[in-house]
Amino acid sequence: MRDAASGVLPYHAHQFDDAEQQYQASTLGMWLFLAQEVLFFGAVFATYFYYFFLFPDAFEAASNHLSLNLGAFNTVVLIGSSLTMVFAVHAAQHGTKKGQIAWLVATIILGAVFLGVKAYEYTHKFHEGLVPGMYFTYQGPDAAQHQLFICLYFVMTGLHALHMVIGIGVIGALVVLAQRGWFDAGYYAPVEMTGLYWHFVDLVWIFLFPLLYLIGRH
């Protein structure tokens, strides 16, 4: 057991009555942050729907510029990384150090696979001339609307990928802390809160995948 006298973190900081109150405060703060993230991504989704209502046919056609197989593969990878993340939290709740580290590392690996596929897709878009701006070379019908769709694609997946990069960094820090024995059944809030963040990133992708990759397949 750890206490303040031994120089290790106590179970709860002095402003809280007990560990339970501290845990509830962390949860409340994290959900407040996530609600703001909902608003942040919500604005981009609102932009998407605004232009979808203006140009539904062009958006459905432009959706076919993207690779369905890569998008579906990444969906499976990201939901899989959410599963490894809940296992990491589960291991922390039951105080198994090896389990925590193994599942956190698995989450990082799956996140890296997702970003690798994303990097491949981006490179492919550059080669195809499907990058908004002066290098946009698509000449088919509704070229301007296709460019708008591709622009939204880069903004939405780019913001999502940025969140993943941050998430991987935070999980990497958790691996170090778990190695030092910070988390056990009595104190695992950082693992749980990082899990909430990671699942939120997964949630955003659950909506991005159909809106970007699927709308034009019929």
Partner: peptide, 23 residues
């Protein structure tokens, strides 16, 4: 299930729902 809202407080639910309503 993954984000444990099933066992969360009504406060956390209200925060999430208010964000979604705003969007």
């Amino acid at each position: 299930y993954f984000m444990h809202l099933r066992y969360g407080t009504n406060m956390t639910r209200a925060i999430l729902v208010s964000g979604v309503i705003a969007v």
